[in-house]
Design a protein around this nucleic acid. Structure first.
Lengths: 222, 222
DNA sequence: TTAAAATTAAGTATAAATACTTAAAAAACT
DNA sequence: AGTTTTTTAAGTATTTATACTTAATTTTAA
């Protein structure tokens, strides 16, 4: 059997270079392509499908989860391993639902990383230790995680639901400005800023500032 | 001349492993030690001083900037290269003031990374291209950046100014809870939660939620 | 064992955000 | 040219946060 062709998608070149160096001695593996964001990754895949996609969860343009969703829909044979910088458990369930074959925290060791790659390349699944528990827990709580291509996609606020003005206002909100200050910045009434704030928070389905920051990051809105 | 002994401090093992793999072929460089947080880094340095410290800016226990400050005070001969995941320019000035010999974004390439290391090991300084501009700009604006050991340290809220209770409440604030909910979580009155919130925001010198999140991350309070 | 610090929580006043609705211009499409 | 969407902004009521001060307990450290 030939080498496993890997596409590596991460917006930090140094991290990519590190991972490539990490895989250099593995003669069953070969990084054939790199992408600095989700969009780029999809473009590369459309030209030549690799065997395995290693993708960072947080990337500009299109985040890891969205990439995995698209990949699993259009190229179901392509295996996917999601890397996350966040030690949080926030995205695990979303990844599983998107159909990812593996999920690793960047806190994992080289050994675990290689183990995951080989297992996934071999048709298996690999989720970092403490993560399995979360999935199981989520499952028993009546929220079964199933690949996105096997059931209706959970409707989620799209990436482009915000208007230009709303994005502008979101940015100012995230800079810590209040409605008064936003109004002054944009030469509109404080009441207009209020209205925009209300609307965008409703669109993003968040009910406070903290959820707003989380969601904004998640969706790469800023 | 012998090898440059490097201590690598980053809380993500995979990133460390990647960097080590990246330096494996460089026979003038040798990673002699690793640390997963700032405290660990300082402990290692106290036992045996390396030639170069490569340190991630965001780490638990003690962040990169604090480590550099301590290092430059106690071991001025030890060179320091700060890595940052954040493409932002938020920390550059702080790094220079702390006395760092270099600052690189993780978006840098392997080549730039090696160039920086060799230059610093050789007694030079290296700041990623776009960064120099920021420093210069900051300088001409009457805010000259000088190493921390050459002038009075800019007073800043210390890392441990928050009491246990305040940290507890901060955590809940950052989870998006309001004072009512915080009170319920901790079985205290909503008014008490308010008081704690007021006090901790005053201590951290922030005036809104966004500044609070930024500061919390910066100081690794959570 | 005291003094100091931390936790609790109330009072009071003001400012800001939330939760809507309505509606008129302006801009962007088809 | 006509329709839809966006941007603007006011009304109204309610909730929440800010900005303090004061002060009684409780815990911790000297």
């Amino acid at each position: 059997m030939g080498k496993t062709k890997i596409l590596l998608a991460d917006d930090h070149e140094l991290v990519r270079d590190g991972i490539i160096a990490l895989l250099e001695n593995e003669d069953k593996l070969e990084v054939v392509n790199e992408a600095a964001n989700g969009k780029e990754a999809l473009e590369i895949i459309e030209k030549s499908i690799p065997d395995l996609l290693i993708v960072d969860i947080r990337m500009p343009e299109l985040n890891g989860i969205e990439v995995v969703k698209k990949v699993k829909k259009d190229f179901p044979a392509l295996k996917t391993l999601v890397l996350s910088m966040h030690d949080s458990t926030e995205y695990v369930v979303q990844c599983v639902q998107a159909g990812a074959d593996g999920y690793l925290l960047k806190g994992s060791s080289k050994e675990e990383f290689l183990k995951a790659i080989y297992k996934i390349a071999d048709g298996g699944k690999y989720f970092a230790g403490d993560i399995s528990a979360i999935i199981v827990n989520n499952f028993v709580n009546g929220n079964p995680t199933q690949p996105v291509n096997q059931q209706a996609t959970k409707k989620e606020p799209a990436l482009d639901i915000l208007t230009k003005r709303e994005k502008q206002i979101l940015k100012l909100i995230l800079e810590g400005k209040n409605n008064q200050e936003i109004g002054e910045s944009l030469n509109i009434s404080k009441r207009t800023a209020e209205a925009h704030r209300f609307n965008l928070m409703k669109k993003l389905e968040v009910k406070n500032l903290m959820e707003l920051t989380r969601k904004s990051r998640e969706l790469n809105l800023i």
